[in-house]
C-alpha cells in the first residue's frame, strides 16, 4: 500500500481554514402531508486534515447530513461553506466539478452501475475529469489493488460479494484523489480483516493530509478517528476530540 495519495488540498485562499463549516442546518423531508425533520439545526466545523467519525442510532440523520456535506443534496435552511465558499451560490456545473475533483463519496448502498465491470465503475469519475483512457484504466486498477480487489477488476457488481462491492465503491471515491473523503458506513459490510485493510487505507490518506469523514456504527472503527460526532434525532448530542487515546 504505497500509492502516492498526496492530493491538492482543498483551497479557498490558502489559510488552512475549515474545510467544512455548516451552521444551523435543517433538513425537512416532505412525504405527502407528513413532514420529517431529519436534521434539526446542525452546526459543525471540520478543519482541513481532520479525521472524523459520525455515529448515532439508525434514523438519526447521519446519511442526510453526509449527503449535504457531499453537495448531493441541499439543506432546507442553514448555510454550508465548503472551503470558505457558500455552496448555495454555486451552479449545477460548478457543483459537478466540486463533486468530481474535491469530494470522494462512498454511498451506504454503494450505487455501482450494474452494467459496468469493477474497474469501469472505478474509472467513471476520471471520465468526467477528462483523464485520458489509458491513464484512467491504470489508475483504476491501482486503486482497486489498493483496496484488495486486484483480482476482481473484470467482475460486474452482481458477481461480487457485498464487502467486495463496498470496496469497489471506496476505490471509486478515492480514484480522483479528492481532498475530502466522505464515507457512509464503508465498513458496514466487511469482516474484521477487510475492515482493517480499509482502515489502513484511511490512515494512509489521513497521514497524507486528506480530510476524512466517515459514518460508522462500530466503536472500534470510530476509535481510529481523531474526533467522534454523535447525532441523535437530527441534533448533535456530543462532539469529542481524542488526544493521545483519551477523549477530551
Amino acid at each position: 500500500m504505497t500509492l502516492d495519495m498526496t492530493a491538492p488540498l482543498p483551497t479557498a485562499g490558502d489559510t488552512a481554514g475549515p474545510v467544512i463549516d455548516i451552521s444551523e442546518v435543517r433538513k425537512v423531508y416532505k412525504t405527502g402531508a407528513l413532514e420529517v425533520e431529519a436534521l434539526r439545526g446542525i452546526t459543525l466545523r471540520i478543519e482541513q486534515g481532520e479525521y472524523v467519525a459520525i455515529m448515532g442510532p439508525s434514523g438519526s440523520g447521519k446519511s442526510t447530513l453526509m449527503h449535504i456535506l457531499g453537495c448531493l443534496d441541499v439543506a432546507t435552511t442553514g448555510t454550508y461553506l465548503l472551503a470558505g465558499e457558500d455552496v448555495s451560490g454555486l451552479t449545477e456545473a460548478e457543483l459537478a466539478v466540486i463533486r468530481n475533483r474535491r469530494i470522494g463519496f462512498v454511498f451506504q448502498q454503494f450505487n455501482l452501475l450494474p452494467s459496468l465491470t469493477a474497474w469501469r465503475n472505478v474509472e467513471l469519475p476520471l471520465c468526467y475529469a477528462g483523464v485520458a483512457k489509458a491513464e484512467r484504466k491504470q489508475r483504476a486498477l491501482e486503486v482497486l489493488a489498493r483496496v484488495g480487489l486486484g483480482d476482481r477488476v473484470e467482475h460486474k457488481p452482481t458477481e461480487l460479494s457485498g464487502g467486495q462491492q463496498s470496496r469497489v465503491a471506496l476505490a471509486r471515491a478515492l480514484v480522483n484523489k479528492p481532498a475530502l473523503i466522505l464515507a457512509d458506513e464503508p465498513t458496514g459490510a466487511l469482516d474484521s480483516k477487510s475492515t482493517a485493510d480499509v482502515l489502513s487505507v484511511f490512515a494512509d490518506l489521513h497521514a497524507a493530509g486528506h480530510t476524512i469523514v466517515l459514518i460508522t456504527h462500530e466503536e472500534d472503527v470510530a476509535e481510529h478517528a481523531e474526533r467522534t460526532v454523535r447525532l441523535h434525532d437530527g441534533l448533535i448530542s456530543s462532539d469529542a476530540r481524542r488526544t493521545g487515546g483519551v477523549f477530551a
Binding site: A96, R99, N100, N111, P125, Y128
Partner: peptide, 16 residues
Amino acid sequence: IREIGLRKALGASPVV
C-alpha cells in the same frame, strides 16, 4: 434516473 443521479454524484454536469 438512478444512473443519472449517480453520474451526477460522480461529477457529470447536466450538460454532459
